[in-house]
Each structure stands twice: as structure tokens, then as C-alpha cells.
């Protein structure tokens, strides 16, 4: 089959060009978005204390990071390995564990 290289190169060049044009247009649009919204929200942010959540009921980014880290460690099993051995030692007698002074003794 004869390849018409000029057509193939046109599709390559034009295709990449249009993809970039459309997405660059969106970049400008989104930059306009961020300029408008950041400007609009700046006065509000100044009055809010740093520790207060930005929206009602939401948690702060620092808390989100802490939760994410905890979940990561939990799912990756990256916590200290427990031995599953109960290590409470039987203490010798003292008045605190005495049956005589217990609440329920029915002497």
C-alpha cells in the first residue's frame, strides 16, 4: 500500500498542535479561575484563625495528612509488630489487690 507521507505528517503535526491549543486555552481559563477565586477568598481567609477548619464540619489539611498517614501505616502494616503475649505480671500481695478490702467481699 502506498503511504501518502504528507497526509500522515499533517495528521501528526495538526493533531499535536490542536491538542496543545485546546489544553493551553484551558490553562488560561483555569488560571483566570484561580486568579478570580483566590482574590475573592483572600479577605475571608485573613479573618479565620489558622486552626479553624475552612468549611463547617471539614477537617484541616494538617489533620487530613495525619489521617492519611495513619491509614497508610495501617494498611501497609508499617507499625510496630506486637508479640501478642500478655505481659502483665502477677504482683505480690498488697492492700490494693486484697480480697479482704475488696468492694464485693462478703465476709
Amino acid at each position: 500500500m502506498n503511504v501518502i507521507w504528507s497526509n500522515a505528517l499533517t495528521v501528526l503535526g495538526l493533531g499535536l498542535f490542536i491538542v496543545f491549543v485546546v489544553l493551553i486555552l484551558l490553562v488560561f481559563l483555569l488560571n483566570g479561575f484561580s486568579w478570580f477565586f483566590i482574590k475573592k477568598e483572600t479577605p475571608q481567609l485573613q479573618t479565620i484563625p489558622a486552626t479553624t477548619p475552612t468549611t463547617s464540619g471539614a477537617i484541616t489539611p494538617a489533620e487530613q495528612a495525619a489521617v492519611a498517614m495513619a491509614l497508610h501505616l495501617f494498611y501497609e502494616d508499617a507499625h510496630d509488630e506486637e508479640s501478642y503475649v500478655i505481659t502483665i505480671q502477677q504482683e505480690p500481695y498488697n492492700p490494693w489487690n486484697s480480697k479482704i478490702y475488696g468492694l464485693n467481699n462478703n465476709m
Partner: peptide, 8 residues
Amino acid sequence: PKSLLLGA
């Protein structure tokens, strides 16, 4: 928004 360029 610059991420769009990487997507392109």
C-alpha cells in the same frame, strides 16, 4: 492548571 500541558 499547568498540569494540562503535561496531559497534552
